[in-house]
Simulated assay, not measured.
Amino acid sequence: MTLKEANAKSVQVFEARLPHVQEIIIAERLFGDPDYVLHVHVVTKDLPAFQALSL
């Protein structure tokens, strides 16, 4: 993912919120574009529900 603003304050706020999103398993900070690679855990009741997600 790419942050809208990549200044120190935006990065600090983003990284402080990451631990509160239980679906994010790993967040890797990159230098370049994109800024982060997020590994997420998504659980749905079936394949159609998964396909309906707006990711």
Rank of each mutant, 00 (worst) to 15 (best):
K4A: 11
E23D: 07
A16G: 13
H39A: 13
L3D: 07
I24R: 02
V11P: 00
Q12W: 06
I26C: 02
H20K: 09
E5P: 00
A49F: 06
H39L: 13
D33F: 09
R17L: 12
L30P: 00
S54T: 11
A27S: 15
D33W: 06
I26M: 05
L30G: 03
A49V: 00
L47T: 11
P34E: 07
H20R: 12
E5D: 14
L3F: 06
V21H: 13
V13W: 04
A27R: 06
G32H: 12
V13S: 04
F50E: 02
D33L: 09
F14Q: 01
K9E: 15
G32M: 09
D35N: 14
E23T: 02
R17T: 03
L38G: 03
Q12S: 08
V21K: 08
F50S: 00
A49L: 02
E23M: 04
F31I: 13
Q22L: 05
V42W: 14
R17A: 10
V37F: 12
Q12L: 10
E28N: 11
D46A: 04
A8Q: 15
E15M: 11
M1R: 06
E28G: 02
F14G: 00
Q22G: 04
A16Y: 07
F31C: 10
R29A: 10
I24K: 02
T44Y: 05
D33P: 00
V42Y: 09
I24F: 13
E15P: 02
A49S: 15
N7M: 05
L18E: 08
S54M: 07
P48K: 02
L18M: 12
S54L: 11
H39Y: 15
P48Y: 07
F50K: 01
H20W: 08
Q51Y: 11
F14A: 03
V11A: 05
A6C: 10
L47Y: 10
D33K: 10
V40T: 06
S10M: 10
V42L: 14
L38I: 01
V43E: 11
V43T: 11
V43N: 05
A6R: 14
A27I: 00
N7R: 06
L30E: 13
A6L: 07
L55H: 04
P19S: 05
V13F: 06
L38W: 08
P19T: 02
H41P: 00
P48S: 05
L38P: 01
F31G: 06
N7G: 04
H39E: 15
H39Q: 11
E15D: 10
I24Q: 04
H41F: 09
K45Q: 10
P34N: 03
Q12A: 15
L53A: 00
F14M: 02
V13K: 12
V13E: 13
E28F: 10
R17D: 12
E15H: 08
I26R: 14
K45D: 10
N7Y: 08
A6W: 11
F50Q: 03
T2R: 15
Q12D: 09
A52D: 13
E23N: 08
V40L: 09
L47F: 11
F50P: 00
